[in-house]
Design a protein around this nucleic acid. Sequence first.
RNA 1: GCCGCGUUGGUCAAGGGGUUAAGACGCCUCCCUUUCACGGAGGAAUCACGGGUUCGAUUCCCGUACGUGGUACCA
Length: 511
Amino acid sequence: MQNSSKKVRVRFAPSPTGGLHLGGVRTVLYNYLFARKHKGDFILRIEDTDQTRFVKGAEQYIYDCLKWCGLEPDESTMHPGEYGPYRQSERKPLYKEYALQLIKDGHAYFAFDTPEELERMRSENKTEENPSPQYDAMFRMRMRNSLTLSAAETEALINAGTPYVIRIKIPQNETITFNDLIHHEVSFDASVVDDKVLLKADGMPTYHLAVVVDDFLMKITHAFRGEEWLSSAPVHILLWKYLFGLEHMPQWAHLPLILGPNGKLSKRDGAKFGFPVYAMNWTDPRTQEFTEGFREKGFLPEAFVNLLAMLGWNSGTEQEIFSIEELIENFSIERVHKSGAKFDYEKARWFNQEWIKRKTATSLLTSVKDLLSNNGLSVTDDAYLEKVIEMVKDRCTLISDFFEQSAYFFSAPATLDLEAVLTKWNESKTSFFQQLMASLQTNSSWNAAEIELVFKELAAKLNIKPGELQLPMRIMLVGGKFGPAVFEIAHTIGKEETISRIHYALNKINA
RNA sequence: GCCGCGUUGGUCAAGGGGUUAAGACGCCUCCCUUUCACGGAGGAAUCACGGGUUCGAUUCCCGUACGUGGUACCA
């Protein structure tokens, strides 16, 4: 069916109407992986044919998301190739001639029905069995269009400037069958598809016309899109057949949907269950509605891409952690599932944790530094920060966890979990820590082993179990019951700071 | 309503006519750790239902149920 020697060209074609959600990024990812795997091109095409839904900033946002994910297109509005323009609104004049050609060939017609007339037709013919009557073979002969009007009447209406749309004339008694890379053979009875509008009254094409024309003009070889498009595939197949010939049609792959905890994944789910749904933070400029993003939540792009890849696809092996290079190598569209997958935030967090563990402290430096500075902690000593990251990264699931896990390395804890020590406190412990401060002060070598030795010898001398003293020591230095080995922490923050924190805490405890 | 697509533990899933039906997340128990994690060892939990086909169906076919998408001059 397909000329396999043709260079692979795929596209992601979003409409700039808002944030980019999980499903969108995964569609990008599968396109990207496929293109890279086959040494092809990945194109970003902006489908802004609905001017009423256009949202300012959405296009830039999409581009920024792809950049953050490391899934940048080869051709786009930002980096045009030889098939531009890449924004459909800028290609407007192109589409009409194809629509006219269809009319000439008897596959489409002018329709003059006003929105009100359409509305009336639908409500008047609505029945229990047919709640949504379609503009189809049944009804088109009862409507105002070039099929029911004479050629002269049609021409007169057009010359008079009457608004019109162009509709496809869906054939009767035809079964439309095509081969989907994921679903294999899919077929529809043409009688159940309606005469979709191809060219709107404002002269803009609808998605149906635009996608076919542009995929042809941009030499797209494989068209991947969400499964919500499967139902309208027959319209696209017909258009390909009428306009360019089925032999040039790209191979379709309709990707399974990503579902939320109950049904289709929505922005609402994210807000309700506390997980991000968009790639990056997004605030709708019109409504000011804010939607949280994975990036700001503390996800690494590597983890985000990894977890998305595994939501609907797997390599068939037990491997779950994949770098982008490994994904490119192993990806195959045939292994994408048919069924939708429920998004599991806990598992998403696990992917991030695995990636944090795998990354070096050096590669984490910039993002952690930004995090700390956003929280009012400016770091000047990169080497020191790197050491801290190395010590705490096994304890972080999200990048944002680095704040709590490392802040005490830079300044004394604001609050101390005294509850944890007070219940078992006694005079001899106070005495222990007072003597400890003195011993540490005079001790010349400052390393973890040495500190531990001093600590334990003193404990033995006062006949206290060191275990009973380690937790208090931790609370004094860290503020809470977490973090790496206490003596490592003491060593890292330094002698002066250690003694100062013990001193401060002791006063608090005995206050 | 009609049409399309789908259905393996709670979730992601491997598998596919004969298996003890992988693995991962989460959950539980234990070990390590006198903190929290990491790590390690175990555990509970699954083929939606009903008919066929077959010596034998989780696997193939048909129904049903359920889920999901479409049914716009939105994409």
